[in-house]
């Protein structure tokens, strides 16, 4: 019944360390409890709450951000792991008066409902199109040696790490197709 006995670290304060990375082009110098995730560093310390906490366990994708050009789940990453990294969050893609094309496409195609998974979906959507351009294969890729293309099922498979309980998937696919088409 009881979990493993823990010896409490008596009132001694938890270890903290300095860490610096850039967020949306701006340098962030923080001194954090080593246990702080990148997600909580963004949301609670930098007050960039666009990145969402849906599960805190890598099971939903709401916390997706782009680090050094690749999307990751920021909930499963310690802030300490990101010394010197370049982090892009939804706020860095665009703001209400200056939307990123993917954000504008989500608005146009109603690629969301409650909006909570949306920043993660958009960070993923932007990254997915880059991953296809970079010729990274996916589970539904037929010929692994041919050029990847942003087909409906390629995009749906690659977006599957971002759960939308409101079920906006088909509209997100339309938004992505518009952005992908615009690029071609």
């Amino acid at each position: 019944m009881s979990s493993r006995a823990q010896t409490p670290a008596k009132a001694s304060p938890p270890p903290t360390m300095p860490v610096s990375f850039t967020v949306n082009g701006k340098k962030a110098d923080l001194k954090l409890d080593t246990r702080t995730t990148l997600l909580d560093a963004l949301r609670e310390h930098l007050k960039l709450t666009g990145t969402k906490k849906g599960c805190d366990h890598g099971q939903c994708g709401a916390c997706t951000v782009i680090v050094n050009g690749e999307r990751i789940n920021s909930c499963l990453s310690l802030a300490m792991q990101h010394q010197g990294d370049e982090v892009t969050t939804i706020e860095g893609l665009g703001m209400p008066d200056d939307l990123h094309p993917m954000q504008a496409a989500f608005v146009k195609h109603d690629g969301y409902q409650c909006g909570y998974c949306t920043p993660g979906q958009i960070c993923s959507a932007v990254s997915v199109l880059k991953e296809i351009e970079a010729n990274i294969p996916s589970h539904v890729t037929g010929d692994l040696t041919s050029r990847m293309r942003p087909t409906n099922m390629e995009m749906r498979e690659r977006m599957s790490g971002n759960i939308c309980r409101c079920g906006a998937y088909s509209n997100i696919a339309d938004a992505m197709a518009e952005v992908a088409g615009g690029k071609a």
């Binding site: 969050t89 703001m95 209400p96 008066d97 939307l99 989500f106 608005v107 109603d110 969301y112 958009i122």
Partner: peptide, 21 residues
């Protein structure tokens, strides 16, 4: 009609309960 709150939601500027700093 595209949602009038769409630009807030798609940029992460819509404040949900836990985010009211």
């Amino acid at each position: 009609t595209p949602r009038i709150d769409g630009p807030l939601k798609t940029t992460g500027q819509a404040p949900y309960a836990y985010e009211r700093h």
